[in-house]
Design a binder for these strands. Structure first.
Length: 507
RNA sequence: GAGGCUGUAGCUCAGUUGGCAGAGCAACGGACUUUUAAUCCGUAGGUCCUGGGUUCGAGUCCCAGCAGCCUCACCA
């Protein structure tokens, strides 16, 4: 209250001190500044939907001849104060819950002496509840005319700029809670992510797939070409890896008779961070006995189209300002076809590949030709695939877990789905020949270190195959990337609530 | 891991050739019973990311470091 006490304080501390003072005033009035149970309030969206109940009652035209004031329904709301306009003996508050915003009208006369005193203690960012009449102001703004104000929680820290919110991308990620409150469309984006995930589960469930939870601690980090995080179990005194894929355990379940099985969960890869990569991300893997990669292609389309429907979007949407058309069937083209189309070179012509590799400055020393070819593909072709396009039939030598095309052992029955230059899905006709599998595991691909190879020997997995895994199709979908596409997000950090950041130095 | 950009009040941002550290919002005091980013008068608020260096003088120039973003590499 006194200026002298603030002279010693600076910046943010002064802002907090002002809020603390109001907190103490509330306590002095016998009001708990941290609130408590507050029942039977309606979502603001539902309250706004009742605006058609506002009206003049029949026979309301009074004896005075003046038109009767329209009456509105009594409502109860709760939310965060995001805007405040004080005009003498009136206060307008805009409160926000996770369904919307609405204006509150607080009049000194209308809320009474105590209510008015409470209102003086409200800051931006506080949580309040209100009982009042839903009606309109003179200017027509839908408003709850407060009869009673309930103080629910004090915010000691001030909110960011009331309209712009947080702009610094680092702060938006570290202080995601503030980004959710104040960021334009941020809460909606993450709720949409939840709807997409729910839709995926629903689609698979409706087709008879069962969801399971495999181990995240693996003795052998297999199923993908990625470097794992390592950890240690003290009691067993063994090093373990965080899983980099779901694949090998789901296939064991296929052996065990789970004919349609999936897991939707987090995997961890100890690799770089980029607008498309986070060290932990959400992966869906689906396995269907007696299917193949074509079965999986059709399933992929259904899963994605249902997710689009679940988010209330049209099949024709835009991403980053560019049109994107999900009308099925998605384009299907072979790896070699696309290679030729986008490089102008014959993928079977070793000299042409060599020239391309030279042009791109690739290190070809001791590498298998297919590895070089794939590096060219990744650099020259993938980013041009706006898609959605299914890329079919990969070189077998880069696919150690995949069944070969019958009569063409150099081709693997694999597809990847590319959309906007991103790999969104990856699927195989699964290899179920235990001896070939063991052979591929033990054979290091020329030019690839063990870290870079998908082929880490997993003897227990080979043993499982020896008991007979049904022929099957397997599918992986990068959920974060799918969410990026369906929320028009340009970076993966926009769709992960708490992406990995370096810890703050002093925190 | 390499290169580029960014870091100034609680938040959003200016800051000229190197010459007293600025604005809007938020806060505090005052006026106002229908506001809409309310308005009006006044007050306070700074580790200019950190550490060195050049200079009479550094937010500004140089070096190193930290963090974030972008591009590339790795990867999905």
């Amino acid at each position: 209250m006194t200026n002298s006490s603030q002279d010693e304080r600076t910046g943010g501390a002064a802002l907090e001190a002002a809020r603390r003072e109001k907190l103490h005033k509330l306590e002095a009035m016998g009001i708990d500044p941290w609130g408590g149970r507050f029942d039977s309030h309606a979502p603001i969206r539902a309250i706004r939907a009742r605006q058609n109940e506002i009206g003049v009652e029949p026979g309301g035209e009074g004896a005075t001849g003046k038109p009767a004031r329209p009456r509105g329904p009594k409502v109860r709301a709760a939310g965060r104060v995001v805007l405040q306009r004080k005009t003498g003996k009136l206060i307008f508050l805009d409160i926000q819950d996770w369904t919307g915003r609405i204006q509150l009208f607080l009049g000194k006369k209308q809320v009474g002496e105590e209510g008015w005193a409470v209102a003086q203690c409200v800051d931006l960012g506080d949580l309040v509840g209100v009982d009042g009449e839903l009606n309109r102001t003179r200017t027509g703004e839908l408003t709850i005319f407060a009869e009673r104000l309930h103080f629910l929680t004090k915010a000691l820290a001030p909110p960011p700029a009331k309209h712009k919110g947080l702009q610094d991308p680092e702060l938006r990620q570290r202080l995601r809670y503030l980004d959710l409150i104040h960021g334009e469309g941020v809460l909606e984006r993450f709720l949409r992510r939840t709807r997409i995930v729910q839709s995926v589960r629903q689609t698979l469930g409706a087709e008879g797939f069962v969801e399971v939870e495999g181990p995240t601690l693996h003795a052998v980090a297999g199923g993908a070409a990625a470097r794992p995080f390592t950890t240690h179990h003290n009691a067993l005194d063994i090093d373990l890896y965080l899983r980099i894929a779901l694949e090998l355990h789901l296939k064991r379940l296929l052996v065990g008779g789970m004919e349609r099985v999936y897991e939707l969960g987090r995997v961890y890869r100890n690799e770089g961070i980029s607008p498309r990569h986070n060290p932990e991300f959400t992966m869906l893997e689906v396995y269907q006995a007696y299917g193949n990669y074509e079965t999986m292609m059709e399933l992929t389309e259904r899963v994605i189209l249902e997710a689009i429907r679940a988010t209330g979007q049209d099949r024709k949407l835009t991403w980053g300002g560019k049109p994107l058309d999900f009308t099925p069937p998605f384009e299907r083209a072979t790896y070699d076809e696309l290679f030729a189309r986008h490089t102008g070179a014959d993928p079977a012509d070793a000299d042409a590949l060599g020239a391309l590799a030279m042009e791109l400055g690739l290190d070809t020393q001791g590498k298998h030709p297919d590895v070089i070819k794939n590096e060219i593909f990744e650099q020259k072709v993938e980013n041009r695939l706006t898609g959605p396009v299914f890329v079919l039939d990969y070189p077998a030598s880069i696919c150690p877990l995949t069944k070969r095309k019958s009569g063409r052992p150099e081709i693997a029955e694999r597809f990847e789905l590319f959309i906007c230059g991103m790999e969104v899905a990856n699927a195989y006709t699964e290899l179920n020949d235990p001896e070939l599998q063991e052979n591929l595991f033990s054979r290091q691909l020329a030019g690839l270190s063990e870290d870079d190879s998908m082929a880490r020997m997993d003897r227990d997995f080979v043993r499982a195959l020896r008991h007979g895994m049904p022929p099957a199709g397997g599918l992986g979908i990068g959920i974060d990337r799918l969410v990026m596409l369906l929320t028009d997000s340009q970076t993966i950090r926009e769709v992960i609530l708490f992406p990995l950041l370096r810890p703050e130095a002093d925190a």
